[in-house]
């Protein structure tokens, strides 16, 4: 048995947090199966980082060094991972359902002639096989799925699985794996504003809708977000009005998010919006209409004018942060 594998995602020289979430999930699955967790890392010049994974539940790292692995491309990664999988035959392969993981999944599965449980929110083991839970129809139903063949591949929704600090250390084994010539080239990286937190990975999101009335009014949400270390999201109405970029849209045709706290300001709670944030652990609605559907989903409802409530709320949060 070659156990449970995770695929390490890194960017700008750092292992991404979503990888540690996958390591935590893999640890639990491996313990139930009575096997080990191996991390596969394709990178260039990050060997030192590989051993750090031991502190998060990883027993062993298979590290492949190569120029071609410096940044992710589907063709290169799928070919290299598929080759390693064929050599070592792991039972389970887990990776984040990040943009990279979503891009990779179909291509890798095609090479291995298996399928994938995409964007899972829970994993269990039954009769030695994986049973995965994944939302479908934008969270309107939850499916329990099983996979046939080997390896069983699942990608994990960011922010759902806990990072587990085990304090161990991992043995790093260098492996050689061939990479095809990539046909996709990275011409340029356009960075977003420094410190902007990605919605899908944010633990707190402050989101604004049509009730914000104008682009410049989002300043009050930006201020609240910076106090809380939060990302700023938006409803489709706010995006379509040109107040926020498309990448900020939360919902069925935007990002599906799962923060600890989602604060919806001036958002009515249309079904397509709820589809994107309905699994948030705590939802706050600030909306002056008591009948707005968002209130029925909210853990805490504030029926009031957001322009009057948000600024003093930001002040209260500052006080709490100062005391911490």
């Amino acid at each position: 048995m070659a156990g449970v594998w995770i695929l390490v995602e890194h960017r700008d020289g750092e292992i991404r947090r979503v990888t540690l979430e996958a390591a935590g999930a893999a640890r639990k699955v491996a313990d139930e199966l009575g096997t080990e967790v191996t991390a596969v890392m394709l990178a260039s010049g990050l060997e030192d980082k590989a051993a750090e994974l031991g502190a998060y539940g990883v027993d062993k790292v298979l590290y492949a060094e190569g120029e071609a692995f410096a940044y992710y491309t589907a063709e290169v990664y799928a070919a290299a991972v598929a080759e390693l999988v064929k050599q070592h035959q792991p039972d389970v392969l887990l990776f984040p359902a990040s943009l990279q993981g979503k891009d990779l999944a179909g291509r890798l599965a095609a090479k291995l002639d298996v399928s994938v449980a995409v964007d899972c929110t829970a994993l269990a083991v039954a009769d030695g096989r994986l049973k995965a839970t994944r939302p479908m129809y934008a969270g309107k139903v939850y499916a329990e799925v099983i996979l046939s063949g080997q390896p069983q591949i699942a990608s994990l929704r960011p922010n759902v699985f806990d990072v587990v600090e085990t304090g161990g250390s991992a043995a790093v084994e260098k492996v050689e794996v061939a990479a095809p010539e990539p046909r996709v080239t990275l011409d340029e990286v356009l960075k977003e504003a420094e410190g902007k937190i990605e919605l899908t990975e944010a633990s707190i999101i402050v989101s604004g809708g049509r009730g914000m009335k104008a682009a410049e009014n989002f300043k009050i949400l930006e201020e609240l977000a910076s106090v809380l270390g939060a990302a700023v999201g938006a409803s489709r109405s706010a995006v379509d009005a040109g107040w926020r970029p498309h990448t900020d849209q939360v919902g069925q045709t935007g990002k599906v998010v799962c923060p600890n706290l989602y604060i919806a300001c001036g958002i009515s709670g249309a079904i397509q919006h709820l589809a994107g944030m309905g699994t948030s652990k705590v939802i706050v609605a600030i909306n002056k209409d008591p009948d707005a559907p968002i209130h029925s989903k909210a853990n805490y409802s504030v029926v009031a004018d957001l322009f009057k409530v948000v600024p003093p709320f930001t002040e209260e949060c500052k006080k709490i942060k100062a005391a911490q």
Partner: peptide, 8 residues
């Protein structure tokens, strides 16, 4: 992608 846009 998360935090950046790649031109490919």
């Amino acid at each position: 992608i998360e935090g950046q846009t790649n031109v490919l």
